[in-house]
Design a protein around this nucleic acid. Sequence first.
DNA 1: AGGCCATGTCAAC
DNA 2: TTGACCTGGCCTC
Length: 248
Amino acid sequence: MPEGHLIHRHADEQHAALSGRVVRAASPQGRFDPRPYDGRAVTGVEAVGKHLLYHVDGAPAIHVHLGMRGLFLRHADPSAAPKPGTRLRLATDEVAYDLIAPIQCEPLGPQALAALRASLGPDPLRRDAARSEAVERLTAFRGPVGAAVLDQGVWAGIGNAWRAELLFLTGLHPAARGIGPDAAARLWETATAYMPLGRDAGQVISDPDAPDERWVYKRERCRRCGAAVRTWQLASRTAYACPVDQPG
DNA sequence: AGGCCATGTCAAC
DNA sequence: TTGACCTGGCCTC
């Protein structure tokens, strides 16, 4: 379930395991050329929204996007055989990470890297995200707030589950338009408060006292008031809202 | 065993 | 607007 919180979790874990180490790189599937990376030192792994970036000494960065189905398999024994479909394996003497079914795994030079960063809005999980810019980009969006938060150029890292839960927690209806700076700031505060909990727990957390529960996402009834949750398509994804707690 | 859907995104029609 | 990506989880048979 790769929304931003899980991408950051992968980045944190792999940064700790790979950064400062020389790695073996391989592509059992054959759709990525590992040669520029094999035997080189990883200098950092970071997440920007839902994108992962591997910085490698003397080689272009590796840009990975998991999409909906991509996943990592971690092998505590780096001599373990990878699945045949493994796009990329990065391994040290201690651990191997196998990348399966990403929508993107490509080398990225400095210019393309800068373009990628420029295309993304502030990420609630990054320290360098500025609240003022987050408010500006959200209030400037022409369209419903439920489409704005899924637009990675507005805010980066939010997916469908976080959209549903963050809008609920802020009391905003996904179809609401013309969100003002106060509401935008409250939504941003909610995102920066909850998404780190989700990163640390490895799942969406919208109630710290009930980490496995959701308020409206994929629910028949609102967990707070019991009203029937409304669902409809918004920005090509299923939107969820409580008609009582998220009035029009 | 097999069908369908999913937390995402983009290129091709 | 649809297909690709080509996995995993859940459901039905």
